[in-house]
């Protein structure tokens, strides 16, 4: 029986899972949409992983979760480690690209930059306040232009004259886009301009003041958009790597981290259990903390969100 480790990255838009062996090789992986329901997404993910999983040969002894729903899913799966996405992405990427210096990442709702030196994170930044230039912005604009977001990159590449689009803020970018469309600019020029504005916005916000050194890798859902990749290359005047497994790096990183934790015995049976989450508003003071309670088959397993003891929910 070989030991292996499960890593799950539950993002706002997609949920990624990998199963790795002790040498950090990916044995199984999958990638599905979160569709606003992380618990259901993870159940679907586990079911599809289980289908190919060789139970005779392997045994999962560690589980890690990352991404914005890491705490919820980590609690449900009784994970050995729950880690923030910055650390997870860095560790996953460094394991594949040991001499990487810069990690650019644009996901569904967030974007981040991680600087690495000698396999160690030296600096990082994450977008604050606003989701300008992230995947959700691109997909909503794709809808407006009535094209599939998957074709975005290839259409952008056909343009020879990208339109200038205001890059600072999503709202400005959107009104600028409408304006440019009404002025009669070609669709592919607008799309190429949009890709450029995403890259520009990224470099001016999270990338501000950061020294971007080669080798550079570009990850997250938006990295599948070749238009944005090309825009980065032309703006940075450097080569940008996009790995075909780029979307799995977070899951891979947290699976690697799970190797150092105490061994557990993971069972796929978890997909048959019934989990419910209920939000409760504490009314003991004007803070009105939003407390999330998680129930497994109607039994409370955890609750969090309270700022003080008075809001603690116990069984």
């Amino acid at each position: 029986m070989q030991k292996c480790y499960l890593g799950i990255d539950i993002g706002s838009i997609s949920t990624k899972g990998v199963i790795i062996n002790q040498n950090n090789d990916i044995l199984y992986s999958d990638y599905i949409w979160t569709e606003g329901n992380p618990i259901d997404a993870v159940k679907r993910l586990l079911k599809s992983l289980e289908k190919n999983f060789d139970k005779e040969k392997y045994q999962i002894v560690g589980v890690g979760t990352t991404g914005s729903a890491r705490k919820l899913i980590g609690t449900i799966l009784n994970a050995s480690i729950i880690k923030n996405e910055i650390t997870a992405h860095a560790i996953g990427t460094i394991s594949k690209y040991p001499d990487i210096k810069t990690i650019l990442e644009i996901g569904g709702q967030d974007s981040k930059i991680i600087l690495v030196e000698d396999k160690i994170v030296t600096d990082y930044a994450m977008n604050t306040l606003c989701a300008a230039g992230t995947g959700s912005f691109l997909s909503s604009q794709a809808k407006r232009l009535n094209i599939d977001v998957k074709d975005f990159g290839n259409i952008a590449l056909t343009s020879t004259n990208p339109t200038k689009i205001a890059a600072r803020c999503t709202v400005f970018a959107e009104s600028d886009l409408v304006h440019k469309a009404q002025m009669g600019y070609k669709k592919e020029d607008i799309i190429a301009g949009l890709c450029k504005s995403v890259a520009l916005n990224y470099l001016n916000n999270v990338g501000k003041g950061k020294k971007i050194k080669s080798p550079i890798i570009f990850q997250g859902g938006v990295s599948k958009n070749i238009g944005v990749k090309k825009a980065f290359e032309s703006l940075l005047k450097k080569e940008v790597i996009v790995d075909e497994n780029g979307h799995l790096m977070g899951a891979l990183g947290v699976a690697i981290l799970a190797q150092n934790e105490k061994e557990i015995n993971f069972d796929f049976n978890i997909t048959n259990l019934n989990f419910t989450t209920i939000g409760v508003e504490c009314d003991k003071c004007p803070n009105h903390c939003e407390i999330i309670t998680i129930r497994k088959d109607n039994k409370l397993i955890d609750a969090w969100g309270n700022r003080c003891e008075r809001g603690a929910i116990k069984n």
């Binding site: 910055i86 030296t122 930044a125």
Partner: peptide, 29 residues
């Protein structure tokens, strides 16, 4: 290593915790 926080009335505390945990991890490494 340095990180900056700018607080306003709309800041989410989850985002702050994510960055702090990443900072602690980075310093440990």
């Amino acid at each position: 290593p340095i990180i900056y926080f700018s607080f306003d009335s709309q800041t989410s505390d989850e985002g702050i915790k994510t960055r702090l945990e990443a900072l602690a991890d980075m310093l440990k490494e």
